[in-house]
Nucleic acid binder design. Sequence first.
DNA 1: GGTCGTTATATTTTCTCAAACATAACGCTT
DNA 2: AAGCGTTATGTTTGAGAAAATATAACGACC
Lengths: 119, 119
Amino acid sequence: MQELLHPDLPFRLNGRLWIEGPTERFMGIGRLELLEKIDRLGSISRAAQEMQMSYKRAWDLVTSMNQQAREPLVSTQAGGKQGGGAVVTEAGQQMIREFTALQARFQAFLAEESRHLAQ
Amino acid sequence: MQELLHPDLPFRLNGRLWIEGPTERFMGIGRLELLEKIDRLGSISRAAQEMQMSYKRAWDLVTSMNQQAREPLVSTQAGGKQGGGAVVTEAGQQMIREFTALQARFQAFLAEESRHLAQ
DNA sequence: GGTCGTTATATTTTCTCAAACATAACGCTT
DNA sequence: AAGCGTTATGTTTGAGAAAATATAACGACC
């Protein structure tokens, strides 16, 4: 493949992986990151902020995941101490672990194919 | 993973793969299809038509590929018999073969991971 | 009861990408 | 020379997605 690419330009193999339901996406790299940040920060709004994402978008993503999962991945509370917050449930934790692992295998696939590509 | 997904909904693992240069995409599944159709039809406009794509977009994609490749993947002629046309070069043929093979390995990866996912 | 920071939700605005549209140039054919 | 179908290229329009904006509800805490 290398001999087909312009010699002066750096090329890179890249890709995306996701799980989709019948009408919308269920899980992907962006949603995974959002889950991780919610887990770490205990708040959808702070997670959104850290991802440079509007709160509404983050909230919509959480709703989409919760509705498509067997049980909610994120549990929320409006009002209460510090105004409320959000916690990643045990199901959510498991989702983080499994999709992270899948993502890692995908990265390994990309790396291996990149080797092929280069030589 | 199965136990995390809503039991009433059908889920599917999906993904995309592409080769990117420093500023823009170089090769992907859409560009591959375009190359194949140009090869079969001998014309950018007819290939675009068959892909439900505007001629301009198809032409822009061809230009992008040609500029990033070591040598053009598509050779064009404006004017002449039947108004002109386009042919996929030997480099283009090779690109079709190699990216198709890569794509097949990726589909195999997805299928294997889907098995994991389901059970 | 008022304040605070958060979730919850609808509406409006902005951005981005592809489509649509519009011409010109090209070179065989008649 | 005119016609044809194609490549070549710029400009305008449109649709969809994301951001921005706006408000309400919530519940602990002071």
